[in-house]
Computed example of a mutant assay.
Amino acid sequence: MADMLLKGQDKNGNGLKNQTIRVGTRKSQLARIQTDNVVQMLQNHHPHLHFEIIGMTTTGDKILDTALSKIGEKSLFTKELENALERNEVDLVVHSLKDLPTSLPPGFTIGAICKRESPHDAVVFHPKHVGKTLTSLPEKSVIGTSSLRRAAQLKRTFPQLEFKDIRGNLNTRLKKLDEKDDFSAIVLAAAGLRRMGWENRIGQILSPTECLYAVGQGALAVEVRARDQEILEMVSVLHDGETVLRCIAERAFMKHLEGGCSVPVAVSTTLKDFQRLALASPHLSLPLLGSPQLYLTGAVYSLDGSESLRETMQMNVKFPLENEDGPNDDIQHVGITAKNIPHGAQKAAEKLGLEVAELLLSKGAKQILNVARQLNDA
């Protein structure tokens, strides 16, 4: 809300009014586009503030000759940004949520999760294969992907194809696809292609029956210092209720399995009977009273896709009236602080993620993931 008063401000807008808010981001073109979008949304809500964007290079940006799953660092695309946040060199950081580990460093929190773009994976074909699908590609065609999750599922669904690691930002990977004959197609997040304005390159969207997506894929997160209540309050206007609940469930599932990029873990979520109601402020969508159902499908795979476990469960996330279940100012759910989303609904979403993970563990998921981790490390 443009005239929203932040903590520490009076009715004249003093407090953060004259401050410059420093925003950390990776330097890639996609990261800058995503950060520009978030900053523009914040500027719209807080026209009295000035925002400065500070680009940084992360470990994941530097190491391009090794598969992501083999680098052995959980915070490949976030560590340097979080270091700057800790040193007070920036006030907030914009991430792709799927890059953020389910356990954040002490003192940090996800202060906002923006409305999710499509979480699905997309196939981009070599120019000579435009118009085809993965099914219609010639046998032994090579598909590029940097994700164990994608490779494991697609090997299972398309055993006639071969899969090879490909690294680099979107621009680099598309150049490798177009200018050489090493790959017949590559698999990327649909959200990134759309944000770059390259939706016309999408040749096929993979459905959840073909390829479940990554935890948090398609959502943007704003990470802040948990003690900075003014900044936390400022960014919280960006929270999207449905996206928050889906991502809490997904992150809780991943955390309980102790998953990460070194093992194939995948999800799909939907929130049904979810009616939106703009309450006091038009920017914040919260659901009406009722009984919306949150569905989570979670799965684990062996590296070659030959073994898998997949289960779907649902949870009633009936929303009480705002704050009906008590204040939740300092409560985090898998690293997310969402004061303006009722605590009971967040708790139900987290419980759903835990229960799906527990069900898979009871059926042998730990053994599948341990073997996958050992083979990947080897």
Rank of each mutant, 00 (worst) to 15 (best):
R116S: 04
K363T: 00
A31I: 05
P320K: 10
G111L: 13
A338K: 01
T337N: 08
Q293D: 04
S69V: 04
Q9M: 15
A249C: 14
K318D: 15
K115V: 08
E258W: 01
Q40G: 05
S302G: 11
G192D: 03
E250H: 07
S281T: 15
S69W: 08
L212I: 04
K70H: 13
S306A: 13
F163G: 00
D10N: 15
E324Q: 10
D330W: 10
P320M: 08
D325Q: 15
T135K: 09
L42Q: 05
A278M: 09
E179S: 12
Q43V: 07
P292L: 05
P264E: 06
I33M: 06
L6Y: 00
S141K: 10
K140F: 15
M313L: 12
L294T: 03
G168M: 01
H126M: 09
G144F: 00
R195S: 02
Q374D: 14
K62D: 05
H283A: 08
I33N: 00
L49M: 07
N376Q: 09
R32C: 14
K7S: 11
T25F: 03
G72T: 07
D10C: 11
Q34C: 13
S362A: 15
Q204D: 04
D99E: 14
V222T: 09
L174I: 12
K7L: 13
L354H: 10
D91H: 06
K115E: 13
I248C: 02
T133L: 15
I248F: 07
G216R: 00
A219W: 00
R276N: 13
A151M: 15
N169A: 04
V265Y: 01
Q293P: 05
P282L: 10
Q153V: 15
L359I: 02
G144D: 00
T25I: 04
D377Y: 12
T297D: 06
K115F: 13
L289Y: 12
T66Q: 14
A31L: 02
Q9V: 01
K27Q: 15
A280T: 09
G15Y: 10
I202K: 00
T297K: 01
T157D: 11
S146C: 04
V93N: 05
I110C: 01
S362H: 09
R194T: 10
E324H: 14
I341K: 00
Y213Q: 03
R167D: 04
L16A: 05
L42A: 05
K62L: 13
H333G: 04
R149W: 01
K7E: 13
M315P: 06
I63Y: 08
R201I: 12
P138W: 07
A348F: 02
L177S: 03
L148Y: 06
G60W: 00
K351V: 04
M234G: 00
D325T: 09
P320D: 10
K62W: 03
L137M: 14
I54G: 03
H45E: 13
L296H: 10
R246V: 02
V94C: 08
F183Q: 15
L220Q: 07
L375A: 11
T25G: 03
N44I: 03
T58K: 02
T297P: 04
Q367G: 14
L284H: 15
L206S: 02
L296Y: 03
E230G: 09
V265M: 01
G131A: 07
T243G: 07
K255Q: 13
R22V: 10
M234P: 00
Q160L: 02
A345R: 02
V123W: 00
L206G: 02
T270C: 06
N316K: 11
H256V: 08
